[in-house]
Amino acid sequence: MPKINWFKYSSPQAFYPLIGKMIPWFTVLAVAFTLPGLYFGFFVAPPDYQQGESYRIMFIHVPAAWMSMFIYVVMAGYAGMGLVLNSRLSSMMASALAPTGAMFTFLALWTGALWGKPMWGTWWVWDARLTSELILLFLYIGFLSLQAAIDEPRRAARASAVLALVGVVNIPIIYFSVKWWNTLHQGASITVTKAPTMAASMFTAMILLTFAFWMYTIAVALMRVRCEILERERNSEWVAQAVGRSR
């Protein structure tokens, strides 16, 4: 057959070996972006004239924050696809992305706090972005705990998909509410400074690390999907063969 049947890959059995081949590539890419990214971030980029060296945590913080939001949207997309098209693989992708998304959200909060201490003198400020990031973490936790609380895999996938979709509709509303709340209540003292003009090397580092995080996310999510496929199909013939062979 000259044509590739793409739908073939929506069945777990067909997808499983393909994922196996994809994971090393994405892992290599993740490392390949991380190393120069960190090099640019720590050695090439000049120190900030206001914040000195401490601003360098931004190279982790900003990509992590971007990824945390991006992953939620992708996750909700997969979850919605799983719900509407009834495809198990999409649901698996959604649940595989959630822990990584939660991890990046937590990382963004943690590095934000570390950055806040030298800049504002406190670990935590109720800044609009930090607050919405915190709420995003709550949304991830809700998704993960709903999934964990339901034993039946099909129901777990579908219920958490509804939650993810409700969450994704709400995220903009939450974000703007928090922003509005923040501008109303804000004392004059605190504003998150945006680097006004970024040096080219800073920009390079940030982009490289964003790509690194991205590749890492794909690699890890695929690994989780692989485990999930094995677990769900553990009674089938092909899993017995696949596992038997690699033993």
């Binding site: 709903l146 969450g167 939450i174």
Partner: peptide, 10 residues
């Protein structure tokens, strides 16, 4: 409460 409270924020 975990699911619903974050959505109540606005």
């Amino acid at each position: 409460s975990l699911l619903v409270l974050p959505l109540y924020i606005p």
